[in-house]
Design a binder for these strands. Structure first.
Length: 425
RNA sequence: GUGGAUGUAGCUCAGUUGGUUAGAGCACUGGUUUGUGGUGCCGGGGGUCGUCGGUUCGAGCCCGAUCUUCCACCCCA
């Protein structure tokens, strides 16, 4: 859990409303309720759901909640870096695997609680870090068995450049959100939305060439630099993207495709340079990974000039995709090799040292804990695909030999422990 | 946040235009030589039909509310 104010305002308006706020506890809460009773805006009639106006709602959230569940791992990481700046040697790398929460309505591939696996490098402007993270995407997802996935690459500076060229720099977020939908809803609808968001016909006309951009990464960048020739920041974004592409190309990738995608616009407010998103081309799933460069996230917490870049793997979505693609091995078969059947207290006491003798010989062995019916114990062994069962009853305790049953072919033999160990090892 | 569905045994689901003791498969359990699994056969336990209220002589089936889960949009991991 974080302090609420640590998280609010970092993820955009949409993000803010998806943060799980946590109520104050105990007397603090009681005191806030008492204090709020005195606010003239809050009359009892306003406490009915239908009459709830936003300002009252805000007031309640502000007064009643002091904490918030982590929305992602990046902002808390930035907070951590600022708080521990004197103890950290920079550039600082860290990975972190933890659950995060979104106050959203769940559906396929969307969870209210899910795990993110983050890797970040903070305290370095170098684009080599971006290159390393692209390689990390490739390495991890390839090792998990994914065969066809795309790392989409864009740059916030390019998006800024676009807004600048159109003449509406303040509209960068609405514009990028709209063009992000190009593939999904088509050109016409995107233009509709842009108009609705306040773009003039002239501005709309200026942006059209952007929607025609296509071809290889190099061709896209070439068209883009002509579109952005008036924008210094836009050209800077192209240059950065070019560097990442070239360097990665020299190193090569295993299964990943690295694709420039100008329509990739992540809603997170804090990205300033490269923006990443990974999608699998083998299953219908939203993005499975994301990330980007944040040049001044720590500034909000009081530490200037601390640029970082990081990526996040969406563990649950990756799991879902792997499940769908049958990428999990049939069984990790580290299961029991020998099961001792339990005939009762005396027999169990006799068997237990033998269990440990087998284990010391490296054989995965267990003794059924209860003197359950034999049929039940045998069925247990069968269900768990345990290859050998050992029966020790009166006879075996006298003779000192074990009745060993091979569960695959049903054959049974009477042998010593040493012989059993030898036959398995 | 917007819209649409769902909710019947542990699990997956049937349940006819509202009508007597609510069913199946799987799972569990007992028996089939009382120290033996996998297939077979015979038997058994288990459900206040999400919750509350309403309509009706009578509701799992109709109506309302509420909760849950799911799906799409929005957004994103």
């Amino acid at each position: 859990m974080e302090n609420r104010e640590t998280l609010t305002g970092k993820y955009g308006d949409e993000g803010d409303s998806l943060i799980f706020n946590v109520m104050q506890r105990g007397d603090k809460l009681v005191n806030e309720v008492i204090a709020l009773k005195n606010l003239d805006e809050l009359t009892s009639s306003e406490l009915t759901v239908k009459n709830f106006n936003p300002s009252v709602k805000n007031k309640i959230v502000n007064n009643f909640t002091d904490g918030a569940l982590r929305y992602d791992l990046t902002v808390p990481f930035a907070r951590y870096v600022v708080q521990h700046q004197n103890e950290i040697s920079f550039p600082f790398k860290r990975y972190q695997i933890q659950p995060v929460w979104r106050a959203d309505r769940p559906q396929k591939g969307r969870y209210r609680e899910f795990y993110q696996c983050d890797a970040d490098i903070i305290g370095s402007d170098s684009l080599l870090n971006e290159v390393e993270l692209v390689k990390l995407f490739d390495e991890v997802l390839t090792n998990l068995g994914m065969k066809d996935f795309s790392i989409k690459l864009n740059n916030r500076k390019i998006l800024s450049g676009i807004a600048e060229v159109i003449g509406r720099p303040e509209m960068i977020i609405p514009i990028t959100v709209a063009i992000d939908k190009l593939e999904k809803i088509g050109l016409e609808k995107v233009n509709e939305e842009l108009t609705q968001r306040g773009l003039s016909d002239n501005e709309l006309r200026k942006i059209q060439p952007l929607f025609q951009i296509e071809g290889s990464n190099a061709e896209k960048l070439a068209q883009l630099s002509s579109f952005l020739k008036e924008s210094e920041i836009g050209l800077k974004g192209i240059e950065e993207t070019q560097f990442i592409l070239n360097t990665v190309a020299d190193l090569g990738l295993r299964k990943a495709k690295l694709e420039v995608d100008v329509t990739l616009a992540r809603g997170l407010d804090y990205y300033t340079g490269a923006i990443f998103e990974v999608v699998t081309n083998e299953a219908n799933m939203g993005s499975i990974c994301g990330g980007g460069r944040y040049a001044d996230l720590t500034g909000i917490f009081g530490l200037k000039d601390m640029s970082g870049v990081g990526i996040s793997f969406g563990a649950d979505r990756i799991y879902d995709v792997m499940e769908e693609l049958n990428l999990f091995p049939e069984s990790a078969n580290t299961a029991t090799q020998v099961l001792f059947i339990n005939f009762g207290d005396k027999e169990a006491a006799f068997a237990l040292p033998l269990v440990y003798q087998l284990r010391e010989a490296g054989i995965r062995t267990e003794l059924y804990p209860d003197a359950a019916k034999m049929k039940k114990q045998m069925k247990f062994a069968n269900d768990k695909q345990i290859p050998f069962t050992v029966m020790i009853g009166e006879e075996e305790m006298i003779s000192g030999k074990l009745s060993v049953k091979n569960m695959e072919n049903g054959e049974q033999s009477t042998i010593t422990v040493e012989e059993l160990i030898k036959s398995i090892n």
